[in-house]
Design a protein around this nucleic acid. Sequence first.
DNA 1: TGATACGATTACATCGTTGAAACAGCGTTG
DNA 2: CAACGCTGTTTCAACGATGTAATCGTATCA
Lengths: 343, 343
Amino acid sequence: MGASLKDVAALAGVSVKTVSNVVNGYTYVAPHTREKVEQALAELEYRPNLSARNLRRGRTGVIALALPELDAPYFAELSRFVIDAAVERGWTVLIDQTDGLADREREVLQGIREQLIDGLIFSPITVGREELAARTDSTPMVLLGERIMDGPTHHVAIDNQRAAREMTEHLISLGHTRIGAIGAQENPSANTAHLRLAGYRQALEAAGLPYDERLAPPTASYHRADGAAVMRRLLELDEPPQAVFCFNDLLALGALRTALTSGLRVPDDLALAGFDDIEDGRYSTPTLTTISPDKAHIARTAVELLDARISGSGRGGRPAEDDGQREVEADYRLIVRESTVRP
Amino acid sequence: MGASLKDVAALAGVSVKTVSNVVNGYTYVAPHTREKVEQALAELEYRPNLSARNLRRGRTGVIALALPELDAPYFAELSRFVIDAAVERGWTVLIDQTDGLADREREVLQGIREQLIDGLIFSPITVGREELAARTDSTPMVLLGERIMDGPTHHVAIDNQRAAREMTEHLISLGHTRIGAIGAQENPSANTAHLRLAGYRQALEAAGLPYDERLAPPTASYHRADGAAVMRRLLELDEPPQAVFCFNDLLALGALRTALTSGLRVPDDLALAGFDDIEDGRYSTPTLTTISPDKAHIARTAVELLDARISGSGRGGRPAEDDGQREVEADYRLIVRESTVRP
DNA sequence: TGATACGATTACATCGTTGAAACAGCGTTG
DNA sequence: CAACGCTGTTTCAACGATGTAATCGTATCA
């Protein structure tokens, strides 16, 4: 195994602590000694044992990123930014995949890995306000996605409801009056879905259009297959929609596939919009109109907030009662592409 | 912070070691004692300090997954399987994103995180045989992707060359004689690219078709944008190809976009094939003919191999000279979809 | 010259856990 | 009844690093 400080010390003919001092850049080390030690360090290819260091320091340098699915493009893209931002700060990121299962999300909250991580960035799907509030684990946490509680939990999110309203308004502005939505959820804790649905309804109402439940059927999850299946149902309606707003791009891509194989022309016969701006939607034919959250901004901000919380909370102490901004609203843009407007 | 064994021991009125024994399910603990201790454990919400445990045991329970890009769908999908398989074995997975940069890949090999992880699953892009052979870090490693050296490095991969040949044969069997390829790489260490190109050329040769370099221009990387750009160049040729084999699905999706916007019908005017079977290709229009590696199998096997190596190599000892199979060839299937054959 | 200050280094305890080994109690066995 | 074996528990040392305080040598100053 790797050499320890002891080995290096023996080789350099100094004490263990001196080697430690050199490693940690302690000021008062004689140049001569420093050189000797550094030579020994190099010769033995010394690498600090992080377990030991962490045990002593009470920090691990590792943060966890807990999210539903790594293979959903939105999360994959977001993860890359989170990891980039974390690495910049010298952190290592460990991934916790919850599959959106309530049990796993609860485990995350209860701090399965409490002792292994300094902080947690968590993108919940099913757990709700109560469970978040009931959290006992004291590991600093930052939530991704809409704010779900008013407590001291930091979070970073775009204004889902407003974005959804804008998108729906966009569809209305194109002259459509029968506008469907794909992505409603029956689970009352599915916060994001509810917010986007609320934005959709808001826009309809503002335009004096009726809300028709049959045009916004619930989906099991947010994958392409769900979008494809629900789209099929919408097309079977007596009066199918002229436009459909999908609550994420995957649903939209699934819906697009169904529409195209059904012989519809998009956007001529049916306008389609998504949400998330994943790369797929920029290369599909037609390309996808969507809401583009600033993922890099979200990721960077989340990591920064977490950093602040971690630095702020001394070992054993609670986090400072007020450690700066805790609710960050991230930017987003509505991007119009071929799926709603022929260029 | 969390309670330690000491606190629990004090509360339960036993020695620290007895608590440790209870926690670790040691057999010889009197039922009465066990109960007392368990009560104390529950009351204090004890959670073992992993740093300390790892320091003592010499294991961390963490493995690293080093790959180029988390947001490339193939890797995202693969990661999900790797994480699933690792979690099943009680491991936590930490992600190392190399961006395919030689420096970062080298760092991975040199064991930046050596002391934090028990093992490493590595999917290299640029580092070659020499660098892999020169590795000094003794952390058990399993490579993903084609075998790059004959040394003691375990690896899991499909037969890239054979798969590429089969795909090219498929295109030939459709009657195409001018078949392009997208994904060749100039970097001589880009092993996968070379293998797929070799398979492509093999098939051409076997069919008595000439290899035309202009039909297989190099790409900078393997993203949709590269596919789109190279496709544009191919279409500008005096004699554009009738079919194009892209070395991954992203390239194919990019190429598809270019083809469709250029007014070509796929597959009628141009047949397109990819490689990887990412989900996008199952929902694009047309759906994508591709090579489908058994990702779950690859992931599971990699984790199993790693497990064996980790268990096999005692602390401080070298891994056993022969610890079972080390070169695993994973399954794959050629999936014909709409992009090459109209249904 | 002796006190003082400061630079450079070291000894020691400690973080929380676990393996090794010792020990205590008690029933068996020859 | 001594020796033995078994269960149940404890003591001790160690994993590798680092914070604290002590130590040592040397230059500085009154």
